[in-house]
Design a protein around this nucleic acid. Structure first.
Length: 203
DNA sequence: ATCAAGATTACCT
DNA sequence: GGTAATCTTGATA
């Protein structure tokens, strides 16, 4: 695969806070290994969720069985099930005991696009429109990458799911807005995406 | 034991 | 633009 030349992000990067990590993850490559295949996409949209002053965060009311991964040491994958249908994946960040994570909201397809298309549309050829909609949402990413409850807690420093160095995104190309799809804490500007990228989930 | 909400998506007009 | 589908979780409305 073309992306294998890139180095995995160092584990200590995930120990930083959610805002630092959210911006840092833009332009990096999320890679999912399945036997010999490596699916990959460029991270183009993320959201930060923290424990304090964030009513929309799963961690706001403290640790529960569902959200305990958010309180783990940074560098794990936190996967949750929502609306009876969809999984969403988050990068756990900060130190052990701090309940924060970065939601991966949208990717630009890079590798194993036919496999992603199979998972999403049950066919390997996609139209232009289907290509744009392949992994431009948190539920779609998990469907295409085959991420479910089984992947909850995976260590991103391992070989199954990891994030590599990718493309440098200049500060001026990072847009910061309020988050999407939540009712509480709507006004906090904790969503970040790459300016003018066609694979953003929503304007 | 019961219930309402939810970090979404696809399909409708 | 609007909403049904679908089910796990956490609080007890």
């Amino acid at each position: 695969m073309k992306t294998k030349q890139f180095q995995k992000l160092p584990g200590k990067l995930y120990q930083r806070d959610a805002f630092y990590l959210a911006e840092k993850l833009l332009g990096k490559y999320l890679v999912r290994r399945e036997s010999q295949k490596y699916m990959a996409g460029k991270i183009v949209e993320v959201e930060a969720y923290t424990e304090k002053e964030d009513e929309a965060s799963h961690s706001f009311n403290g640790k529960t069985k569902r959200n305990e991964l958010m309180f783990a040491s940074g560098g794990k994958l936190y996967v949750y099930f929502i609306y009876g249908n969809h999984f969403c994946c988050n990068v756990v960040c900060d130190k052990e005991g701090i309940g924060s994570a970065v939601l991966i909201r949208a990717l630009e397809p890079l590798e194993e696009i036919e496999l992603m298309a199979q998972r999403r549309f049950h066919k390997s050829e996609v139209s232009k429109k289907e290509f744009l909609n392949l992994i431009n949402g948190p539920g779609k990413i998990c469907k295409a990458f085959g991420i479910s409850k089984l992947e909850n807690g995976i260590d991103l420093c391992g070989d199954d799911i990891f994030i590599t160095e990718g493309e440098k995104v200049p500060k001026k190309n990072i847009v910061r807005t309020s988050r999407i799809g939540i009712k509480k804490s709507k006004d906090l500007p904790w969503r970040f995406y790459i300016k003018d990228n066609p694979f953003i989930s929503k304007k």
